[in-house]
Simulated scan of single mutants.
Amino acid sequence: MKRLFLLLALLVSVNLHAQKFDGLADAPQMGWNSWNSFACDINEKLIRDTADTIVRLGLKDAGYQYVNIDDCWHGKRDKDGFIHPDPERFPSGMKALADYVHGKGLKLGIYSDAGATTCGGKPGSRGHEYQDAKTYAEWGIDYVKYDWCDTKGLSAQGAYTTMRDAIRAAGRPMLFSMCEWGENKPWEWAKDVGHSWRTSADIYPCWNCELNHDAFSRLGVLRILDRQAGLRKYAGPGHWNDMDMLEVGMGMTADEDRAHFSIWAMMASPLILGNDLRKMPESTLRILSNKDVIAINQDKAGIQAWKFFDDGRLEYWAKPLANNEWAVMVLNRGEQVVSTNYDWKAHFVSDEVSKREVDFKKATYAWHDIWGGKSGDTSAKLDAKVAPHSVLLLRLKTKG
């Protein structure tokens, strides 16, 4: 009961103009989440083993820092309404698990929902927002993914702002990842509410498909990419368009995996791994730990890419980087190998969002092919072949 009185006192003292914690997502967040591979089949051993694996495989050194527990960790609420973890799945408790993850130099994330129940039918946070945020802070949680099931009649802006304020009142910096699937256009109002917001339905590990369920659909890589049109102006340091968790290593081809990872990097989407890290082959690890692709995603300029040219067979995407550098991605959506003989000097590239531009008639850039290893410069046409369901990913630096 004492905890409940303390909570009520905390509510009275809350600043009505509370803001999210700054500095937690100056670059898109990187980590791992349990849902894509395990859904509700989770326990504390899986989380500990995954944290160990992130460190052992060098993924921590590559920038992945969050170990996020998704739905179904929940036990019951006690008589005062405070949530507890499932005692069979998490017998040591969340505080002990957070301490273990922190001991590895990593951070622990947790999941809840704006409704009375989660998507998996567990207790949601509706009516318990301040209690739950306080509990998470006491456990040592660093990241809150907040879903949107069982929310009929709720205002998304109101519900997410309430949890933001609750997290702020709890006093522990926790990254706030909003997961309402873009249904309420969070990019228009959530810059000061969350550190990232989902822009589409859940992802599915396919190139260009839509998997229909009774009440919802899951989307392939290209379907999610196409839903980003017009959203890049809303993204930047501390507030990112989230294209959902990665499906690299979950059944697509190697070309599709490299393209998927490249697209998410170019679009400045959070890089949250979804595969079973304990069992992945070396080829998947090489994709997920590619430091040059990660550097594009984590670039301090924080600018999302846009498609600046489409020749009907290949799409050309540009991302301005810090220090007057650029990333260029050539995307082959189709089923056949396509050759490019792109003339750099034929296109003046100008970005209305960042106000960055480049005229290859006046400036020559050296380029490096990140996946293929080749190099060249923009004084000559780009002569390359792009495999189906694949990308050519280049980093450009001025010569001289």
Rank of each mutant, 00 (worst) to 15 (best):
Q336N: 15
A133I: 15
L225E: 12
R258S: 02
F176H: 08
V221P: 00
L11K: 15
P28W: 09
E180S: 06
D214H: 07
I224V: 12
K76S: 15
K399N: 05
L288P: 02
C40W: 12
S34W: 02
A215V: 06
P28M: 04
Q131N: 10
A190F: 04
K397S: 01
V330E: 01
I141Y: 06
V248D: 00
A39T: 08
E335S: 14
D71M: 10
C206Y: 05
T398L: 04
F90L: 06
A201H: 13
W32Q: 07
A301E: 03
D165V: 04
S196A: 13
F90A: 06
L321D: 00
D61Y: 01
D78A: 06
E129T: 04
K107L: 15
L222S: 01
L106A: 07
N323Q: 07
G120L: 11
P123T: 14
R286M: 06
E282A: 13
F348D: 14
W73E: 12
A25R: 02
F348G: 14
L4I: 11
G127S: 03
A169D: 09
F5G: 06
R126M: 14
Y100C: 05
D311N: 12
D142Q: 12
D202I: 01
L154H: 12
A116Y: 15
Y365N: 09
K397R: 01
N33G: 07
G302S: 08
D52Q: 12
A201Q: 12
A215K: 09
G251A: 07
G158I: 10
L8E: 07
G274Y: 06
E315S: 05
D369P: 00
T253V: 05
P205Y: 06
E352T: 10
D61G: 01
D165C: 05
P320F: 12
E129G: 04
L97C: 00
K233D: 08
E88H: 11
A305T: 02
W264T: 05
L225G: 09
H389V: 08
L285D: 02
E44K: 06
I303H: 08
L6E: 14
V67R: 02
T253S: 10
F216T: 10
A190W: 05
A27V: 13
V293I: 03
W344I: 03
G302H: 08
W189H: 07
V358H: 09
V55G: 10
R172C: 14
G140F: 00
K233P: 06
R227K: 14
W197Y: 14
N290G: 00
W306A: 06
L271N: 08
L288Y: 04
G58H: 12
G249Y: 10
C40A: 11
N341T: 11
V193W: 08
L288M: 13
A295N: 03
L222M: 07
T284K: 02
H74G: 11
G75F: 11
E335A: 15
Y342D: 08
D310R: 04
L246E: 13
M178P: 04
M252F: 00
K122G: 15
Q228T: 14
V248G: 01
L211E: 08
